[in-house]
Design a binder for these strands. Sequence first.
DNA 1: AAGTGGTCTAGACCACGAC
DNA 2: TCGTGGTCTAGACCACTTC
Lengths: 246, 246
Amino acid sequence: MTSAAIQPQPEPAEALHLRIRADIEGRIISGAWPPGYRVPSEHELMLQYGCSRMTVNKALSRLADSGLLDRRRRAGTFVSRPRGHSAVLRLPDVPDEIERGGRLYRFDLLRSSRRKATRADARLLLVDPGTPILALACRHLADGEPFAFEERLLNLAAVPEAAGVDFSREPAGSWLLRHVPWTDAEHRIMAVSAAEYAEPLALPPDAPCLLVERRTLREGASITHVRQVFPGHLHHLDASFRPAGA
Amino acid sequence: MTSAAIQPQPEPAEALHLRIRADIEGRIISGAWPPGYRVPSEHELMLQYGCSRMTVNKALSRLADSGLLDRRRRAGTFVSRPRGHSAVLRLPDVPDEIERGGRLYRFDLLRSSRRKATRADARLLLVDPGTPILALACRHLADGEPFAFEERLLNLAAVPEAAGVDFSREPAGSWLLRHVPWTDAEHRIMAVSAAEYAEPLALPPDAPCLLVERRTLREGASITHVRQVFPGHLHHLDASFRPAGA
DNA sequence: AAGTGGTCTAGACCACGAC
DNA sequence: TCGTGGTCTAGACCACTTC
């Protein structure tokens, strides 16, 4: 305890646990505390900041969650050794992204077929062959220009209500986001040649494209597999890393 | 309180706050609690689980951090509405990645020049023209095959000790990771044609490539700008989303 | 006005693991 | 063994915002 501190610190500009977190984060980012450095124990910090152990613990736990600190019982708390970069990538809904950019969104449904999963479908969607699925292909346009080509498989066994939806009126991705939210997903990002997508995208066949492949799951069951192809010259993905979930 | 619960719940297979978190997460992922649904208040949950409010708060705060919940004073806690997908992308150190794959890593330093930043350098690295920099180009090889081409600008004003390092012995990226750890970074991922990278990568000029561009900062100062080009046919980036920072 | 979340306290017991 | 972090409690005051 330094001076006045009986109980409340409502949130005077910033909560104390946030200040402690920022302090420590600052020392790590600035290099004052290099990887492997042993951070003061919770007990020490509690004395330094004149607060309870819970408050210090909150700050340190968060930093450990975000990967900056490594905590071991008895041993103590240490600054982690980074082994590469990690970043949070946002993959917005395509119509959303286009409209946010102030452009006019439109889309064409190019193909739609309801069928039983072939071996190839089954491999992509991770379902048993024969499972009823919906296979869609569409093209997203921004201000009338081809923006992305999309091929999608939808597991009708998992999302039977999708069978009755008119996907020429609303893109399947947006519909799914509203009707089957909070799923788990695996993404893969690749570079490919336009090739078979050249025509719908109005590109030369060897134009480089960004391919984003996503398999969406819910409680272990496959919901959808989607492959989105973006012309390389007008699309990129941005990701940023901030050291503490800030 | 239901039955026995005087004080300690050490961690009987799982901490209580983790169980509460998993319960709620499960309800959201399963769709039982759809977006916009009002989650029971901390007080209610505290009664349901027979624990203190702090424990409930810990679980809910974490879920709010990870984006699944939206908390507002007085109003309550609600399931968030997702607007797209977000995923954590790992961008490992290239040598690390290759060796982890059980392949032999080697690299060639193709160019190295120390100079004052030109206008073009300055724009990429976000420094003032004239700042002393190191410009490097190298090629990463896996089992003797070209794996990636890398162009890097290094701000010698920010990392003066790099001037004395022999980057033909160790790749700059790995050196930086060890000597200037825990930086902030901005990434951009694009698809491009091999073009000027075709020769070092032993590719046809129109082969699609994945280009990862990264600017690394420390306390607002630019450290390095790197552009890595990976042949599209043998490289991809994987990212996964787990709904609760788990 | 009242109920919500945000923060904080001053204790406590326990498991782990470096010594 | 014993210091460390991991967890938990039963309170507390406050700010905010909806009612």
